[in-house]
Design a protein around this nucleic acid. Sequence first.
DNA 1: ACAAGAAACTTTAAGCTTGAAATAATTTTC
DNA 2: GAAAATTATTTCAAGCTTAAAGTTTCTTGT
Lengths: 156, 156
Amino acid sequence: MVAGPLPAPSGPGKDRLRLWIRLLRASRTIEAELRERLKKEFNTTLPRFDVMAALYRVPEGMLMSDLSRFLLVSNGNVTGIVDRLVSEGLVARARRNGDRRTSMVRLTEEGSKSFAIIAAAHEGWIGELLGKVSEDDARRLTSMLTSFRSNWEGRE
Amino acid sequence: MVAGPLPAPSGPGKDRLRLWIRLLRASRTIEAELRERLKKEFNTTLPRFDVMAALYRVPEGMLMSDLSRFLLVSNGNVTGIVDRLVSEGLVARARRNGDRRTSMVRLTEEGSKSFAIIAAAHEGWIGELLGKVSEDDARRLTSMLTSFRSNWEGRE
DNA sequence: ACAAGAAACTTTAAGCTTGAAATAATTTTC
DNA sequence: GAAAATTATTTCAAGCTTAAAGTTTCTTGT
């Protein structure tokens, strides 16, 4: 890690900037670790995991556009990830509801079983990686981030 | 946003998992917004901005490997981003120190001027996007994340 | 000195990501 | 009820990202 040779700037607004930088670094650090473990242990990727996690909560499936909104990624992106999951037999697209533009995407039985195993390991990893954060801090942080989220959603 | 139809799970370990999910969502939300504004307002990208921000702090420049470590991305990745910045005239590679394997990378004068402008806008955006987080919470969050970081660095 | 190993960087292949353009199906408007 | 607008999704081009393999240049052990 390269130490910043310039003195830490201060002033109004700098506190938020510093917070953002820390937030980004923390999530990138954890993300990198998860990515590596998913690859090594289960030969899968974080985006695939994210899609499967979203679908796991909703057995009847989700529309592509719901997935895209939920995961905060572009719809073209979801198409590619789902394509790969389908070709691996973990996910199925069901065309034809009433609206023939849409396709309902859901985990296959294999996908569901596979995800359950990975998710258990994932939860353990998070426990390990965030283990040094006290229960108290974890709850406090969570509630601050929750209030950030609701502020965000009510903006514009 | 799709609401989770399953009841929120509880139990030991779930608090950390919930924290991680919130952390990830918060940073992705902000990242997406920054990415979009960087594109729209300055026709640049977050990775380019990150590299320039790292270099801006160190006028004499950094080695590729330092950049890679500092930004938490792979070295092959940095090569590509720096290539593009060089072709745009914002960054310069200076071969030949004593060690001819290394190249010292630094902002050009144009790059430095350009970054200063973008950075000012960026800081304003962060102030806006995180504006609803109180100064107090911002400092508390920052210190929690800092202690996470130092715990992290001391692991393994 | 010289071979073996390590270090700094680039290249490559595969996959992720975005924004924009293209398709196809539905809804709205006149 | 046809044209226009909207919605859901896919395709595309460009760029980001990683891990692994390759190149070049030091460094080390003998």
